[in-house]
Simulated scan of single mutants.
Amino acid sequence: MIEQSAVLGVVSVALGMVLSPGPNMMYLVSRSTSQGRRAGIISLGGVAAGFLVYLVGANLGLAVLFAAVPELLTAIRIAGALYLLWLAWKTLKPGGASVFATQDVPPDPPLRLFLMGLMTNLLNPKIALLYVAIIPQFIDLDRGNTLLQGITLGGIQIAVALLVNLSIVLAAGGIAGFLSTHPSWLRTQRLTMGSLLAVLALTLAFT
């Protein structure tokens, strides 16, 4: 039902966005480095719950809209491309933030960690636009069942985001320490992720 190119496109976008600066990553890294891996994993559980809320809510509404107004996909494609370009600029500009620029935070109990992860994701404009303006453009109206396509592609994005975030949570302390003493590697990370986002934006805009 879903073309391989759509799957690869969503995987590429998911990788570019999960590794670009944002509230989710900064919160998870901060928790992992200040309170330990267990706190980071619990926080990631809250982030995952937020993804599911967006997945269900966005796709139920978008399925109805796409059926009524197919031309909406064109507007969504342009908006998504512009947003990716904006993320690329934020990453590449002088003084741009790194996902490993951590902050010291006080320890919190598991329930609060989970709820803070949930709210961080729900209030993250990057994730809202991801589900409203980027993933939907990979839906093919000619293949039918846009709801199932949207949920499947969103599920792929969640899987990529959680795997990458879990890997970073488990290694956050070592990675943050290494990058803080090797600024050239930190610049390379920003340059790579920013360039990837820019390429994805241009590809989506002219496809």
Score class of each variant (00 low, 15 high):
R37K: 14
A67N: 07
Q103Y: 12
V64D: 10
A49V: 11
L73Q: 15
Y83L: 15
S30L: 09
L65T: 14
P107L: 04
V47G: 05
S30W: 13
T33D: 10
L52I: 12
I76N: 00
P106H: 09
A68N: 11
P70C: 11
A97F: 00
L85T: 06
A63F: 01
A75W: 11
I78M: 04
R31Q: 15
G95T: 09
L92M: 09
P21D: 14
G36L: 03
A39E: 14
L111M: 08
Q103I: 13
G80S: 15
G36D: 07
G40A: 02
M25N: 09
P21V: 13
M26F: 12
V64G: 02
L52N: 07
P94T: 05
T74Y: 02
F66P: 00
I41P: 04
V69E: 12
R77C: 06
T74W: 03
G61H: 10
L92P: 02
T91G: 11
R77Q: 08
K93G: 03
A81N: 03
M25P: 06
A63M: 07
L92F: 11
G45E: 14
L82W: 09
N24K: 03
L73R: 04
L55R: 08
A101L: 14
A48H: 08
G36W: 06
G61W: 15
N59T: 03
A49R: 02
L84V: 01
N24C: 02
A63I: 00
